[in-house]
Amino acid sequence: MKNRFVINPVLCTGCRTCELACSFAHSVDGKMGRSRIYPLDGGMTDLWVPVACLQCEEAACIKSCLVNALRRNPETGAVELNEEICVKCMACVAACPFGCALHDQQHDLIIKCDLCGGDPVCAKFCPTKALEYKPFEPAKKKIAG
């Protein structure tokens, strides 16, 4: 787990390029899938927040999966869904406290961010670097308040 997926809402312009890139990268049979990342304006007029799976350490989705379709990839640290095993009971969709496990109604699939197997396409296409996949560095300055 060398790199981390970093979201910096301050730089986000809400252009939704990440959504488009995600839909293309996770297309099913040549048809665009539902995006795993959601830029929402968060109720603050000047800030857009791309919401994507936070790959929790103690993940509610893994706990809720009764057939063990969700497992952590030890290389990327991402929680990955095995679509073959998934029985579509929607337990993970209901359990995720961040709302980041989704149901793709068009293809009838449960989807969640898997960091594209260690090379997130959304971060590559983000024009303002609001999304980055980079080695983790602790904050230099402590922020007061």
Partner: peptide
């Protein structure tokens, strides 16, 4: 966790992340 739907959970997440970013 189950009492709020995934769309409302996402909105909450964006709200709190936006607040921290602000």
């Amino acid at each position: 966790y189950f009492e709020t739907c995934d769309a409302c959970h996402r909105k909450e997440t964006s709200l709190s992340m936006g607040r921290i970013a602000a």
